[in-house]
């Protein structure tokens, strides 16, 4: 059973390998809508915007909110400040950490309902568990940052998360007159595989902000592997990444 809805402006897909999934898929989508209503900076009544307007103090906010603030703080420290939920307007925008966290929490809803073969994909960040409908490892394609229709790498996962940070602008015929030779070091895509999508997502976000050096952050962290693509179309992978390529 697979369903896709557009939530938070991105496609969210849930697949559970089972004939009868009951109401669990609805529960998962309801959860994402709940999260969007609570954490969106694009909704004026969201709790995070109430905090931004000073109507609620973080310490008096909901448990979810306090958890996110705690996790964001921890991530900021772990990434040497390359991750920060305070955005350029000086307001709290936790979207960089909420997404991976919410996908992981959503997967727990499915787990608790007794299913062990499923995936949850929100805008290209994915948590998988078990096997696909053919009884094989989940087969996940990494998008070509220069051509969204194309896959440039296939990885196999049976338990864990993958998240990709990057930009596809370059692949969309957006032309920069200065971009002739000097920007070969620029990175356009960074995928991180981790024990779960929460870990993969937050470190993908932070490592991408570091530029080409971000791959070394991923290399240093136990349990994480990464695949980085620069603007010249050269990919660099961490030393343990290959185990996900050969299934």
């Amino acid at each position: 059973m697979r369903q896709t809805h557009l939530i938070m402006g991105m496609p969210v897909t849930v697949e559970i390998v089972a004939q009868d999934t009951g109401f669990v898929i609805d529960k998962v989508f309801d959860y994402f809508i709940y999260i969007d209503n609570k954490f969106s900076v694009y909704k004026k009544d969201s709790e995070v915007m109430q905090i931004n307007r000073g109507e609620i103090l973080v310490e008096n906010s909901s448990l979810d909110m306090q958890e996110i603030f705690g996790l964001a703080d921890q991530t900021k420290q772990e990434t040497d400040g390359y991750f920060d939920i305070v955005n350029q307007f000086g307001i709290y925008d936790p979207s960089g950490i909420v997404k991976g966290w919410a996908i992981y929490e959503a997967s727990k809803i499915i787990e608790q309902a007794g299913f062990d073969n499923y995936y949850v994909d929100a805008g290209g960040d994915i948590q998988v568990c078990g096997k696909n409908s053919e009884g094989k490892q989940w087969k996940i394609g990494i998008k070509n940052p220069f051509n969204q229709e194309e896959i440039v790498k296939t990885v196999y996962l049976d338990n864990g998360g993958i998240a990709t940070s990057g930009t596809y602008i370059r692949g969309q015929h957006i032309y920069n007159p200065r971009d002739k030779s000097e920007q070969i070091t620029e990175i356009v895509s960074l995928s991180v595989i981790g024990p779960n999508v929460y870990e993969a997502d937050r470190f993908a976000t932070a490592a991408f902000a570091m530029g080409k050096a971000g791959i070394h952050l991923i290399e240093r962290i136990k349990g994480l592997e990464g695949y980085i693509i620069d603007s010249a179309g050269i990919a660099t992978m961490t030393s343990g990444f290959e185990k996900y390529i050969n299934n």
Partner: peptide, 29 residues
């Protein structure tokens, strides 16, 4: 970033692969 344990990372030119996959990972940022 600490460079004391700089690993040897493998690089390759990206090339198109089969689109026959279950899920696709990509950026939305």
């Amino acid at each position: 970033i600490s460079r004391r344990a700089m690993p040897i990372l493998k690089s390759e030119a990206i090339k198109s692969q089969s689109n026959n996959v279950d899920i696709v990972s990509g950026a939305t940022e």
